[in-house]
Design a binder for these strands. Structure first.
Length: 492
RNA sequence: GGUCUCGUGGCCGAGUGGCUAGGCAGUGGUCUGCAAAACCAUGUACGGCGGUUCGAAUCCGCCCGAGACCUCCA
């Protein structure tokens, strides 16, 4: 397969032509959530970004295996020895099994993803279900000489790795010498040969509830092991795309590369993609800063920063209106604008079905379609693609008004083009649960009422006409007059 | 302190050496019994100061401002 897709590779900091290792197969691994709390706007970003990548690759005809993990083992909260497992801590505080916590929040995460029309990945592996694979990989790293055991914990020997491969820091731009100077001194670090070494298997203190047996004793896998082990298991030692948030670049992804190179002898991913952060008042939205807004609160409006609720699809559209590598700033104003824009596109989707073909075309959409492809081929530039759809929207409205004409064949092409980009690729669909719109019965009732109103209008009985319109409005149905009748729609 | 990114019109947000981004809001108009929608028109935008160039918002330098990573974080 030969597409002209270019992807910005964090590894080289350049846009590179996308050439999958085994075209038309394409493999993608994305770091998913740690399930110890509700997903917030920040979590929506990678989910939607890589959903777009997934959808577009599928659209181009690739057979994509998309793996997005669920971290249910819980990373350490503080430093090595004093730290406590996030999920374990929550479990202890709430007197629940860690698995109960993880299951509860994965469930809610899935619901949120569903609401935002994020496609289900091909595989969604859980870290806790892959302890054996992680232990095996730790063994491989030890066998290769890059792991050492101290007090039932195993650490990665960064200095040796750097001496042998010169690769440490290639992704994040870190320089080991500088890291040495800057790494803060922590208690309990004396187990490590060097402060920048990281744990690949950690001994569990007696009170640590999440623990598994291993050749080194009771413990749990290191912070970065799960992604290395699970990506290797499901996508192979080498695969095409690895994605995640920019904040994971270092140390998480840098460590993943080191682990894979140490264990398998080669780099895991060809292309590394990183989405930028969501900011709020110019500052990163994050758990540790406590300035996050959960998706559930966005959807129901219950947060002091929210003027009102915003729908899941508004959030999706809001995200797609910015390029994934730019920061995106949250504000009520921006969300309001996104909501209106989204509705406009959705209305166009509806309008498209009402256009009557003519015997000739006065408009062409070929150029817009071409630009949509160019935009998405250029590192998934969704905002530019969307701007083309708005252009199309304007022309489609003119077709409906009758100021432009379109032939049957062109109309079919137009429908295919507009729907495939809007619905299939960008994943933008009407979210009204108000499918009553299509409800036969309601439809017939309304049509009858409108017929009466039309007669009233013809008799210049505007009082009655307005009364009908107001009454319908009251019932949640809005009327928009045309020259020869009226359109109606169900209000949200 | 080190590494890196960004600064675009009222708001959001693309672009990147010369050719309209787009959305939202505003203004004027068309249409309409009214309303809404739609369509048409409309904005001395590119942080500041220098430099390169026939030409820079776009390249280079300096300055100012904001942010990210360096610790778990999407």
């Amino acid at each position: 397969m030969d597409s002209k897709l270019y992807i910005h590779n964090s590894l080289t900091r350049k846009k590179e032509a996308f050439k999958p290792l085994n075209s038309p197969q394409a493999g993608m691994y994305v770091c998913g959530p740690t399930v110890y709390g509700d997903a917030h706007l920040g979590h929506a970003r990678p989910a939607i970004t890589f959903d777009l990548v997934f959808r577009y690759l599928l659209h181009l005809g690739y057979k994509v295996r998309y793996v997005r993990n669920i971290t249910d083992v819980g990373h350490l909260e503080d430093d090595a020895d004093e730290g406590e497992d996030k999920i374990g801590k929550k479990a202890r505080l709430e007197k629940l099994e860690p698995m109960e916590i993880a299951h509860f929040y994965s469930d809610r995460y899935h619901r949120n993803m569903d609401q935002m029309n994020v496609k289900v990945p091909s595989i969604e592996p859980q870290a806790s279900g892959h302890i054996i694979e992680q232990i095996e990989m730790v063994k491989q790293i030890i066998d290769a000489g890059y792991g050492y055991e101290v007090n039932s914990s195993v650490y990665f020997d960064v200095q040796k790795y750097q001496n042998d491969t010169k690769k440490y820091g290639e992704l994040s731009g870190r320089v080991l010498e500088e890291l040495k100077a800057n790494t803060r001194e922590l208690e309990g670090q004396d187990e490590k040969k060097n402060p920048f070494d990281f744990a690949i298997w950690k001994n569990a203190a007696p009170e640590h509830i999440m623990r598994w047996p291993s050749p080194w004793g009771q413990g749990f896998p290191g912070w970065h092991m799960e992604c290395s082990a699970m990506s290797t298991k499901y996508l192979g030692e080498k695969f095409d795309i690895h994605g995640g948030g920019m904040d994971l670049l270092f140390p998480h992804h840098e460590s993943e590369i080191a682990q894979s190179v140490a264990a398998n002898g080669n780099e895991p991913a060809q292309y590394w993609m990183h989405n930028n952060m969501v900011t709020i008042n110019g500052q990163k939205m994050g758990k540790s800063l406590g300035n996050f807004i959960t998706l559930n609160k966005l959807f129901n409006g219950e947060h002091n920063l929210l003027e009102r609720p915003y729908s899941p699809m508004t959030i999706r559209f809001f995200m797609l209106q910015a390029h994934y590598r730019s920061t995106i700033d949250f504000s009520n104003e921006a969300l309001n604008a996104a909501e209106k824009g989204f509705k406009r596109l959705m209305k166009t989707l509806d309008t498209l079905e009402k256009i009557q073909p003519a015997n000739e075309s006065t408009v062409s959409f070929k150029e817009l379609e071409k630009k949509c492809y160019e935009a998405l081929n250029d590192d998934f530039n969704s905002p530019v693609a969307i701007s083309q759809l708005f252009e199309a929207s304007r022309i489609i409205n003119s077709l409906k008004d009758g100021s432009e004409k379109i032939a049957k064949k062109d109309l079919d092409d137009l429908k295919a083009f507009f729907k495939s980009f809007t619905v299939d690729v960008l994943g933008l669909e009407p979210e009204e649960k108000v499918k009553e719109k299509n409800d036969e019965l309601l439809s017939r009732v309304i049509e009858n009422i409108l017929q009466v109103r039309q007669e009233a209008k013809q008799n210049k009985d505007f009082q009655t006409a307005d009364k009908i319109r107001d009454a319908l409005k009251e019932a949640g149905i809005s009327i928009k007059d045309r020259k020869d009748g009226a359109d109606w729609s169900v209000e949200e």
